[in-house]
Amino acid sequence: METTQTYSVLVADDNVLIRNIVTDMLRGMGFEVHEAEDGQQAFDLYRCNHFHIVVTDWVMPNMTGLELCKAIRGDSSSRAHAGYTYILMLTSQDSKNDTIAALDAGADEYLIKPVHKPELQARIRTAMRIIQLEAIRQSHFEQVQKASLVDVLTGVHNRKFMEERLPLEVKRTNRYQRPLSIMLIAFRDIDRFRKESGIFVTEKMLQAVAAMLRESIREEVDWVARWNEYQFLVLLPETDVNSAATVAKRLKIRMNQLTVEVNEASYKTTALYGIVGFTGDQGKKELTVDRLIEFAQQALEKADPETLIGGLKLG
C-alpha cells in the first residue's frame, strides 16, 4: 500500500484557525499539504497541481465550496486526468438538503464541524482506499483499451487501430495538403511456407517481421499494423510515393536478411510491397479506408517481379 507521503492534499478554508488545525492534523499523518484561503485560490492551485484529496469549507469568499466542487468535477484540463481527486466537504451546515447539495456538487464525503480528529483521520483513510481502487480500475481500463488495439500475436497495432487511425491521417493530409502513403506488405507463397514449416514457425516468422517493421519506421510518426492474417499495413504520413518506395526497398533488404531459428533449423521468407500515395487536397472528397486498401491491393498485384514493389500515385 502507498504511504501518505505519496499523496498531496489541498485544504481550502477562509478561517485561518480551522485551516491550521486541519493542516496540522494531515501533516501529522504524513501528507504533503497545500493551503488556500478561498475557493478561487484553491481552484487555481488545483489547475496547476494534481491533488489526490481536497478538503474544503462550504462558505468561502470568491468561490464557495459547492462551486469549487463543481469546478473540479467539470475541469477538462490534462491535469484533471492525472488521477481521481477525492473531495471532503467540511461545514457547519448539517441539514439533509445541505448534504444532498454537497454530494450532488461532486463532494465524496461530508463532515460536520467542529472537526473531530479521529473522525477526520478515518475519513481520510477511506479516501486513500477509494483513490487506490480508482487507480487500479483506471489501470485495468487502460490495459483493456490498449489490448483492444494491439495484435496479440505480434504486438503491433491491429486492424481496428488502423481503421480508426487512417481516416484521421487522411483528413489531416487533406486539410494541410500534405503527402500521405500507405504500404501493404504481403508474404509470398505463404500457404506453401505454412505447409512446409508448420504453424509454430509461421507465427515465429510473423513476430520477427512485426518486430523488424516496428524498428524500421519513424517512431510516433509512422504506424504499422497487422492488417489480416498474413499482411501488414504501414501508414506513412508526410511521405510521397517515391519516398515510400525508398522505404519499401529498405524494408525488403531487412526482410531478406531476416532469419528465424527454430530447433536448429533456419527459416527465411520474402514479401511483396504495394504502395499507394497521394497529396491532400481540401477540395477533394476524402478517400475511405476500403478504397485506399483496394488501391494498395492493386499495387501489390502489379508489383515488379524483380523489385517486388508496386506503386500507385493517386491524382
Rank of each mutant, 00 (worst) to 15 (best):
D151E: 08
K117Y: 04
L153G: 02
D104C: 09
H81Y: 14
Q132M: 06
G83I: 06
Q145C: 06
T99Y: 15
E134Q: 14
A102T: 01
G74R: 12
L133K: 04
Y110H: 09
Q138G: 07
G83P: 04
S76W: 06
I131L: 07
S76H: 10
L120D: 08
Q121R: 14
Y86F: 15
I130N: 05
H116V: 06
A135F: 02
A101G: 08
E109Y: 06
A102W: 00
H157F: 01
H157R: 10
M128E: 07
I112H: 03
L90A: 09
I130Y: 07
K113A: 03
E109Q: 07
V144W: 11
L133R: 09
A122Y: 02
L88H: 01
Y86Q: 11
A82Y: 05
Q143G: 08
L149K: 14
K146T: 10
R123M: 13
H140Q: 12
N158C: 15
T85Q: 05
E119G: 04
S148P: 07
S148D: 06
R129D: 13
I112N: 04
E142N: 13
Q143V: 06
A102N: 04
Q145N: 10
S148E: 06
G74I: 10
L149R: 12
V144A: 11
A101W: 04
Q121V: 15
Q143E: 09
N97Q: 14
R123H: 15
T154G: 04
R137Q: 09
L103K: 03
T91R: 02
L153S: 01
A122R: 04
I136Q: 15
D151S: 09
V156E: 01
A82G: 05
I131S: 03
V150T: 13
H81C: 09
A107E: 01
R79G: 08
A80T: 12
D98E: 00
Q145W: 05
H116Q: 06
A135Q: 04
S78T: 11
A80S: 14
A102L: 07
